[in-house]
């Protein structure tokens, strides 16, 4: 039995997109121009939708979805899932709150200045904590890899870079970093041999196409293109996270 299935892979990918989009939103909000503010609203909206669906995916993965509240009611300070569920909840509240504050597209005020640093910290936490959940699973040797937090972090930065639309060199640099980290994980853990065949190879292909190729080719300032890239990144992250989950045992 594979206890962490595709619902969890979907959640991990949505959390990555949510964290990256929120991070980009924070950077855009710190700029003074109106265009950045409009783009920040879209980034926060993407983030809020992603984390909302992500949490639904988490609930769907439970054997008893109706009892999801027990995860929030009973806190186990040693458990990264317990910590993470609170991080995700606070993140959703902060993203939704900040989105509400900038809904008019004009007044940013003190609420924005207060919300941006809080959301930035929560975004970093949300991006990294899934790797710590995996690291806590001692029965899966590959998940003990020290590269996992960097892979999850780099993925979130990749999402943010796609939304910020910096220079081509920066985007390609982030992609190269992510590729190197995922490759390093597969080689150092011995998971590469498991990727060579079967469904794992298909998921790896999805990851490569939708994380690396599609967003890199689809470079466009239009908001519609940004949403398409976000969708593509969800698919791509899903592929890569599925591979990581499927190759837990070396």
């Amino acid at each position: 039995m594979n206890p962490f299935g595709w619902w969890i892979a979907l959640y991990f990918s949505l959390a990555t997109v949510a964290a990256g989009a929120a991070g980009a939103g924070c950077i855009l909000l710190s700029r003074a121009d109106a265009k950045s503010l409009l783009r920040a609203r879209l980034a926060l909206a993407v983030s809020f939708v992603a984390i909302s669906f992500g949490m639904l995916a988490l609930i769907a993965d439970l054997e008893h979805p109706i009892d999801f509240w027990m995860t929030l009611r009973h806190y186990n300070p040693a458990s990264w899932i317990s910590r993470g569920s609170r991080i995700a909840m606070l993140f959703a509240l902060a993203t939704g709150g900040l989105l509400f504050v900038v809904r008019g597209g004009e007044d940013r005020g003190n609420w924005t200045q207060l919300g941006v640093p809080i959301l930035a910290v929560l975004a970093v936490s949300l991006a990294i904590y899934p790797s710590l959940v995996l690291g806590q699973e001692l029965g899966r040797p590959n998940w003990q890899s020290p590269l996992l937090p960097f892979i999850f972090g780099a993925s979130a930065i990749h999402v943010g870079a796609n939304i910020l639309q910096g220079t081509r060199a920066i985007e390609l640099g982030v992609v190269a970093l992510e590729m190197a980290l995922v490759g390093g994980y597969l080689v150092t853990t011995g998971a590469l041999s498991q990727v060579a065949s079967g469904s794992t190879l298909i998921y790896m292909g999805i990851g490569i196409v939708f994380v690396w190729l599609v967003p890199t080719v689809m470079r466009n300032e239009a908001n519609a293109a940004m949403l398409l890239r976000a969708g593509s990144l969800v698919l791509g992250c899903f592929g890569i996270r599925s591979v990581i989950l499927m190759t837990g045992l070396s």
């Binding site: 206890p3 439970l62 008893h64 995860t71 009973h74 899932i81 699973e137 029965g139």
Partner: peptide, 12 residues
């Protein structure tokens, strides 16, 4: 208290 998170399974 168990709601079937399944986190304990790969932990062991």
């Amino acid at each position: 208290r168990c709601n079937g998170t399944k986190a304990c399974i790969p932990a062991c």
